[in-house]
Nucleic acid binder design. Structure first.
Lengths: 342, 342
DNA sequence: GTGAAAGCGCTAACAT
DNA sequence: ATGTTAGCGCTTTCAC
């Protein structure tokens, strides 16, 4: 009995060629759907392929084509909770759905600390992937530079802090936050507070900027005691809201920079005996599904995921194909979804 | 100006060799940490490598070594919520931590439907990875067979349904459930119900088996009206508990097959005016962190993740190295963690 | 339409 | 300790 732990020798192109009675070149043409093959030859090759259960060796192919036909989605987030973030899950699902009918593979890479970031950088530089989609970029993220320096096609999911020459796709966070705040202004509120996202994330910064912009445009002052920083989690939202209630009980509305935080905000308001929306109006952002489950359902600014995920792969593929000039970015329009009585 | 969208030509081994004034073989030896290199030669090569920013081409290397130094963690779960499952997140974190000090790469692959499963199978067969860890295997999962047939080293995270010749790592679900149930018997309870996991998952089946085993051993009958099937989610647990309360209000204890479900169970009990643990004793399984957050903290059977994740990679690497005989499996001991007053 | 031949960048005997 | 040589399995001109 031979060693069963050794991987079986896989059939090669030549073996297929011999069995089909043609040359390696012809087999290669059939495999790659070249039109310059006679029906008989194609037939013979295909049946040989089937008989031998032949699968092309990607390493050999990549060595000459310089393509791997796989792209990486890198999750660059130190804390563990990335996975539980529905935004993240939606992006993964969206991108993988976009790639479903192509022959491109998608691999997920995590980079929780500096060591893992370097590993990811190396992985990409070594030619394992044709391009990278990078998620959740903090201000001090070294990965964009590493990858850009290595010439690896790159698209960020989320606007980078400094407006460097990197392609990205993002929601119009500033505009969406402004619309949300304008809505509160328009419904007659005057003491409009905000629970921001973490201000070391661009989504947090931009949504906060939109809030201030809308207040200023409406002639309202931006009062520091009406601003509390959250961390995009339920618990963080609750904590921030408790802080706001302690500092400025006179507030009559809140723009919450994410819907999971809004869940915590509602809990804090309820605990404090404030009624929503009669006493305090609340508008969220981001995850319409979460907003829907609130009681009462929350008016929220929906993140246009259906627009964003196809764009991510589209821009990346364009870079990989090498068409067009400099890396291109896109910002997707957001819109207010009115719900309940807010 | 040349085309900037084209990837720059990367330096090769030969260029390093020329610059260092040695042969390619010597460069290769330095790169691969061979001891048979003089200090001077090593020095010269290393500085040439640094100067050219040389990175070995993995495709070329893999073509000859037949190793990619990357393993895949495949998430084979149709529904979206995998990502939000803390068990899944823990496994990913654990495996990637185990691999941190090695030079092995870890890629995550998702397989949500049959099409994606085939894609994953192809990816592995084409030689992109040295081995696969497969998570969340349902009874009809075709992936194990596909991979096994292709001779791809494979370790399942979770016992397979049929006891096929596949390596796996699992917690002692049956034993743990039995211990949990014995604990309820031992504390004087007589009407011990259970909220099972989904019975198309082996973890659900095994924990249910342990429950019955313990009851039978104690001379108690297994009463169908005391059994309700959940789906490992909070909402599912709550629904199942409501069902049990309607069917058998006389119950005085519940073994809940997962801690997230236990959260729902507690909610249902509270809503029904039942007090825990005075009126109904509850014991959970699986996620000690969740059990800890319950009010009061839940007595639970802890999943031994710290044991399981290193084993997953260990067994896989052993297969990859080709040492030892047939694929080896391991079941990790579970233990009851007493908390609160239950 | 098809085949012959030349590599892609690397490792691994085998010499020396 | 170092260099020479022969491929790994595939794509791709270039002839025919």
């Amino acid at each position: 009995m031979t060693d069963t732990s050794t991987r079986p020798a896989l059939p090669t192109l030549d073996e297929v060629a011999v069995l089909a009675g043609v040359s390696r070149a012809t087999v290669s043409r059939v495999i790659n759907d070249s039109p310059r093959v006679s029906p008989e030859a194609r037939e013979a090759v295909l049946s040989a392929v089937a008989e031998l259960r032949y699968v092309p060796n990607r390493m050999a192919r990549s060595l000459v084509t310089r393509r791997t036909d796989t792209i990486a989605l890198v999750l660059n987030e130190p804390n563990t909770q990335v996975f539980s973030d529905p935004f993240f899950a939606s992006i993964v699902r969206g991108v993988s759905a976009t790639l479903a009918d192509t022959d491109l593979n998608l691999v997920l890479l995590t980079a929780r600390d500096e060591r893992e970031q370097e590993k990811v950088g190396r992985y990409a530089r070594q030619g394992h992937v044709d391009g990278v989609i990078l998620m959740s970029v903090h201000s001090d993220d070294p990965l964009p530079d590493i990858l850009a320096a290595a010439g690896v096609p790159l698209v960020l999911c989320g606007r980078p802090f400094d407006d460097r020459a990197v392609a990205y796709v993002d929601a119009d966070n500033r505009g969406g936050a402004a619309v949300a705040t304008e809505h509160l202004v328009g419904t007659g509120h005057r003491q409009i507070a905000t629970v921001t996202g973490p201000l070391d994330m661009i989504a947090g910064v931009d949504r906060y900027a939109g809030y201030r912009e809308a207040l200023t445009a409406a002639g309202h002052p931006v009062r520091p005691e009406l601003v509390a920083e959250g961390d995009f989690t339920e618990a963080g939202g609750q904590r921030a809201m408790e802080e706001l209630l302690a500092r400025a009980p006179e507030l009559d509305a809140v723009f919450v920079a994410s819907d999971p935080m809004a869940v915590g905000v509602l809990r804090a308001l309820r605990a404090a005996g404030r009624r929503v929306p009669e006493d305090v109006a609340v508008v969220g952002f981001d995850d319409a599904a979460v907003a829907e489950t609130c009681d009462p359902p929350l008016t929220t600014v929906a993140q246009p995921l259906a627009d964003m995920t196809p764009l991510l792969t589209e821009l990346l593929l364009r870079q990989i194909e090498g068409v067009g000039g400099p890396a291109e970015s896109r910002v997707c329009r957001t819109h207010l979804v009115r719900r309940g009585s807010a």
